[in-house]
Amino acid sequence: MGKLIVFWSPIHGQGGTSANAAAIASLFSLEQSSHSLLTHTQLTYSPLDSYYSKEKRAVGFENSGIQALERKVKSNLLQPEDIPDYTDTIYKRKMDLLIGSLKENEDSASDNLRTISRILYSAKGHYDTVWVDTHAGVHNETSKTLLEAADLVVVCLPQNKYVLERFFTGDYFPSELRNKPYIILISRYEENSSLTVRNIKRAHKVKVPILPVPFSPTYLDAMNNHSVAEFFYRVNRIQNGDPAYSFIRAIRTVNETVRKALGLDKEEDGL
């Protein structure tokens, strides 16, 4: 079975969850020997859907994406080998994207949870790694279920003292993370802030990995221009001094940490 990596933030709009999921999954897929699926937990449209193509913003997805797979789930016909037929290929034999729908979803929350769970379980039977951008917040049932099911959780936090304190003191810390492998990303990181990674670790006595993801205007432009796939195709040409250099270096460091957390380094040593 493949590995399930869940991106989650305790708060809406500040954690950079979708941006981090797209960046980390894209670069991991290009630079590692694995076949990946990138998706989200919204049966309807997510901003993640637009990062790779402008056209997805204006068309319906009746024969592809989560909506089409939902029909297979309800008919009890979904098999792991079915998943790629309903995805968009981002990097051939490297990464597929499973998008949502522009239609309003009328199912109950429990039905939606069942649909998402079945799709992701089947995806793990086909892909080496499944990267999921999930709802923010500590009360969403779908997110809580995925946090518990994940092989690794990537917690996305802002460089905000109030949010950091509430996370580390427990107000924003879900019980599903206890005894669960997870790492922490500080999104839109400013190295000149007093809230450095070192100071955060010292103040809260943190033992889990905390990694910075610096703000990158060029990556922001790629998301806004629906060209994230092309942005990461060019990373081998990015040299020291390039505006995106520190960002790419940080994402590579995150991916090294992900590989270790999932035990993928040990698997390659075994080979």
Rank of each mutant, 00 (worst) to 15 (best):
S143D: 04
R118N: 14
H226C: 11
F215P: 05
S143H: 08
I238V: 10
N179D: 15
R178K: 15
N160W: 11
S227Y: 08
Y233R: 15
I248G: 01
S194I: 13
N255A: 08
Q239L: 13
F215K: 07
G170W: 07
E191H: 14
D171N: 11
P217C: 14
A244G: 04
S122Q: 08
V254M: 00
V155N: 03
R234G: 12
H226A: 14
A136E: 02
I184L: 09
Y162E: 12
R166D: 07
T134I: 01
V258F: 01
P243R: 07
P158S: 04
T134W: 00
I238M: 00
L195A: 03
L195Q: 06
H204D: 08
K124Y: 02
H226F: 09
I251Q: 01
I238R: 01
D242N: 10
R259G: 03
F247Q: 06
M223A: 08
I186V: 05
P214L: 03
F173I: 09
V154D: 00
R198P: 03
D133A: 03
T142G: 10
P174H: 04
I183W: 05
T169M: 12
L195F: 00
L195E: 00
Y219K: 01
N224G: 13
E191F: 13
I184M: 06
H135G: 12
S193T: 06
V132K: 00
F173E: 09
P181E: 10
N224P: 11
N199W: 08
H226S: 12
T142L: 08
A149Q: 10
Y121P: 12
T129R: 10
T129G: 10
K161C: 13
D242A: 06
E230Q: 14
N192H: 12
V132E: 00
G241Y: 09
T218Q: 10
N240T: 13
E190Y: 13
V130T: 02
V154Y: 08
A149S: 13
P214R: 07
F215V: 09
Q239P: 06
R198G: 11
S246L: 14
G241N: 10
G137Q: 08
R188N: 15
S227H: 05
P209W: 04
N225S: 15
S143A: 11
D151I: 11
L211H: 04
